[in-house]
Design a protein around this nucleic acid. Structure first.
Length: 552
RNA sequence: GGCCCGUUGGUCAAGUGGUUAAGACACGGCCCUUUCACGGCUGUAACAGGAGUUCGACUCUCCUACGGGUCACCA
């Protein structure tokens, strides 16, 4: 009786301005009316101005889980740490999610929040957290702690010296039994305080939980009286997580495995308060091969940790998503082989199928996927996507590319559309170099001539070809003419015969073709020469042939 | 240091007590080919180590090693 009264007075002392009750909030944020099995997930980044590859990784899991179950995927801004918040960071988050095609149903936006479970920025929810904290104080489950940073450091040192576990618990919890009078006096002195949770945990107890990704995990029960509200009245991550995911009616919490060690806090709070726990998916980290060892992808050391890296390089967003999916669900690749053209969202993602170990980020694999995805696009699509990329990241090239759209589209259509399309580029930033010789401004004249040919023979090709060149020729006629010239020069027309006895000829039709290619494109690797010549046009072709001859 | 998670080829990985231990990427070879690509075929290559349980262990248990995470009024 006496104690209950004390608790009520303490709650009033700490939260005189709070008039709502938890029940009020239960009414404001009712259970969601969703079909059976629908999942409610969220992406909850901190507005640090930096989107990590891991953010996308988690967001994709959230998004798939929610949307393939007919549920809700929302965005919550975790800005409880004012020191880390960066101006414009929310915009970075929104832009990134948008760039990778992850659409959330409710949450923070640049203007008004969308959805009825908001506000979706934690700092705007202070009253809610304080209301719950107040009710916990009333129930004797939380109390104010006036320890300063120095006090806690001393505590830590003592524990270290005596070999005790670190933390604020049991006999070390000096304010656990503070009275109303004592608290009132300290507050009157202007002493700052935090509100701590009174952990019901018992030393030696073990708890078990089945994580959707990790499976059964067992760990010691939490005994720490962790901080619920910081001295500025804003919650710690732990408290905000429990309160928000309860009232936002989250069913599945997806987060990195760095949260595993504080997982017992969360489970304990849900149980102690009497709320239903969400399901958890703790994901392994993306690793980076660093010499002979592996480490977490680092935002400082690894450019590929940064989401903007992929945009700058010009990876089509869906390729990054596709790559992520192969890492997340190993049966995805098998599905993809069976359904090469299906929409990625038709694949049924399963949290249980996720690997438990961290995967090394495999850029080769991403590149391969990207090449394949791009190879399936039409010239028109490639043009459009490249233009979008170039406008932002390579304005100089953008000007060239868009100077004559029909011309550029024709170039980008070479070798596309068939059953075995070319795979010339991995990222949009490969396109400028690929197209360079189609523009006089960027045409390079290094001329890597076939090494086995004499200067005279090269000149002969260059000088004689114009007389047999006819723009109207179809590909077969065009090539027959190349063969005729080859034969006239005593070179091998039949590649089999040439390969059987290379010494019998000065060279082969491959060399003659190479001369044409090098003269016209300035390089040894290019798309089909016939197609290139058609696009360049007779005037340019003849001009380049004579230029090449002059340069010899 | 305490606690937790993890460890199958160079990389991603299938595998849940009995398999010739899949497949993909990368790498090599061959074929196709006027070049560059594409494509097809093919090759090298793995269960971290040690005990145990079992007729039998990549699969179960324990120990060791190594890697990662975490021990804040940061998330």
């Amino acid at each position: 009786m006496e104690q209950r009264d004390q608790n009520r007075r303490m709650a009033q002392l700490l939260f005189p301005h709070i008039t709502k009750t938890p029940e009020d909030y239960e009414a404001i944020y009712p259970e969601r009316d969703l079909p059976e099995g629908a999942m409610v997930t969220r992406i909850a980044p901190s507005p640090t101005g930096f989107m990590h590859f891991g953010n996308l990784y988690g967001a994709l899991i959230d998004e798939r889980l929610a949307h393939q179950s007919g549920g809700v995927f929302y965005l919550r801004i975790e800005n409880t740490d004012s020191k880390r918040e960066v101006e414009g960071a929310v915009e970075v988050i929104l832009t990134s999610l948008n760039a990778f095609g992850l659409k959330f149903d409710e949450g923070a936006t640049e203007g008004e929040d969308r959805g009825t479970y908001g506000p979706y920025r934690q700092r705007d929810r202070a009253e809610l957290y304080q209301t719950i904290a107040k009710s916990l104080v009333e129930r004797g489950m939380a109390y104010p702690c006036f320890c300063t940073e120095e006090d806690l450091q001393v505590l830590h040192d003592k524990q270290e010296a005596s070999g005790a576990n670190f933390g604020y618990y049991g006999e070390w919890a000096v304010h656990a039994n503070i009275t109303c009078e004592e608290a009132e006096a300290l507050i009157a002195e202007g002493k700052p305080y935090v509100v701590r949770f009174r952990s019901p945990g018992k030393d030696g107890n073990r708890i078990k939980y089945k994580d959707l990704a990790k499976g059964e995990i067992e760990m010691p029960e939490n005994c720490n009286d962790i901080v619920l509200l910081k001295s500025d009245g804003i919650p710690t991550y732990h408290f905000a997580h429990v309160v928000d995911d309860h009232f936002m009616r989250t069913t599945h919490v997806v987060r990195g495995e760095e949260w595993l060690s504080t997982f017992p806090y969360h489970l304990q709070m849900f149980d102690a308060i009497g709320w239903k726990k969400p399901a958890y998916v703790h994901t392994a980290h993306m690793l980076k091969q660093d010499g002979s060892s592996k480490r977490k992808l680092s935002k400082r050391k690894d450019p590929e940790a940064r989401l903007t890296y992929y945009l700058q390089e010009g990876y089509p967003a869906e390729c990054v998503i596709e790559y992520l999916m192969t890492v997340l669900n190993s049966n995805f690749e098998e599905w993809r082989r069976k359904n090469p053209d299906a929409d990625l969202n038709e694949f049924r993602f399963k949290a249980e199928k996720m690997g438990v170990a961290g995967a090394v980020f495999d850029i080769d694999k991403l590149n391969d996927i990207s090449k394949t995805v791009i190879s399936k696009m039409s010239g028109e699509q490639v043009y459009d996507a490249t233009a979008v990329w170039a406008k932002e990241y390579n304005p100089e090239f953008y000007a060239l590319l868009t100077r004559d759209p029909a011309y550029s589209k024709a170039i980008l259509s070479i070798g596309r559309g068939g059953k075995k399309p070319r795979k010339d580029f991995t990222v949009w930033s490969d396109v400028p170099d690929y197209m360079a010789f189609f523009f006089e401004e960027t045409f390079q004249t290094a001329y890597p001539w076939p090494e086995n040919m004499s200067k005279n023979d090269i000149l002969r090709v260059l000088n004689e070809y114009p007389s047999i060149y006819d723009e109207a020729d179809d590909q077969q006629t065009w090539f027959n003419k190349v063969k005729d010239l080859t034969a006239a020069m005593g070179y091998a027309v039949d590649m089999k015969a040439y390969k059987a006895d290379p010494t019998a000829f000065p060279g082969s039709v491959a060399d003659i073709s190479a001369v044409l290619r090098v003269a016209i494109t300035g390089r040894t690797a290019s798309p089909d020469t016939y197609a290139v010549m058609n696009i360049l046009g007779k005037e340019t072709v003849l001009d380049r042939l004579s230029k090449a001859a002059a340069a010899l």
